[in-house]
Every structure is written in C-alpha cells, then in structure tokens.
C-alpha cells in the first residue's frame, strides 16, 4: 500500500461528493454529498500525514511514530462536519415549514 492508492480513493470520493453537491435538487442529498467531500479530505489528510511527515522523512526513522498532525486535523473536520449537519438540517426544517419544499432550486430569493 502506498500513498497513491489512498489519494485515488480520496479523489474518487471527492469527485462523487462534488457531483452530488452540484447536481442533486434535494437539499438533504446535497448535505450528504458535502459530507462525502469532507471525508475525502479526511482520508487525504491522514494519508499525507502518514507518508509525508517532513520531520520523519528527514530523520529516516520509524514511520509508525508520526507527528499525527493530519489525524488530529481530520478529527477537527469530523467535529465541524457534525456541527454543520446539525445546523444545516435545522435550516432545512425551517425552510420546509415555511415553504413546503426541500428543493435547493426553489430557494433562489437571493437572485438579481
């Protein structure tokens, strides 16, 4: 297993998430797609941290004792994503109550 394999998986998940975000009308689906993108980033962050930590590469020592920067970052991202989902769903429920729709294309009041 090397870095490229992880990155290919990450890029694939990110592309799927991006496609979902742009193309799906239902806001719930859009939110889920955003979650996919965030998790793709998590995978990439952990993989980079595992394979490319500069402090380890320069010393040439045991790779299992990395500095865990990317891993900690991914934990933060997971936390923020949870908070974002909570807020997002709350907004969707409010919008649904007032407009009876969960289609993102119907919420276009900010247009010119």
């Amino acid at each position: 297993m090397n870095l490229e394999n992880f990155l290919i998986v990450s890029a694939a998940i990110f592309a799927i998430g991006l496609y979902g975000t742009i193309s799906k009308r239902n806001v719930i689906t859009v939110l889920m797609s955003i979650e996919l993108m965030l998790n793709a980033v998590n995978i990439a962050a952990v993989a980079f941290s595992r394979y490319l930590d500069p402090s380890l590469i320069s010393q040439g020592t045991d790779v299992t004792r990395s500095a865990l920067t990317g891993q900690i970052f991914s934990l933060f991202i997971v936390t923020v994503a949870a908070a974002e989902i909570a807020l997002g769903v709350a907004i969707i429920i409010t919008v649904y109550r007032s407009r009876e729709t969960v289609f993102i294309t119907d919420v276009n009041q900010m247009r010119h």
Binding site: T21, I104, H112
Partner: peptide, 17 residues
C-alpha cells in the same frame, strides 16, 4: 454582470469548481 447572479447556489458551486 448582474444576470450571472441567478440565486441558484448549485450554479455558483459549478462555476467555483
């Protein structure tokens, strides 16, 4: 420039990407 602002956030996302 104004017509670009359609209010469709997915359109913005597409342009951004």
């Amino acid at each position: 420039i104004a017509p670009i602002q359609t209010g469709q956030s997915q359109g913005y996302g597409l342009i951004l990407s």
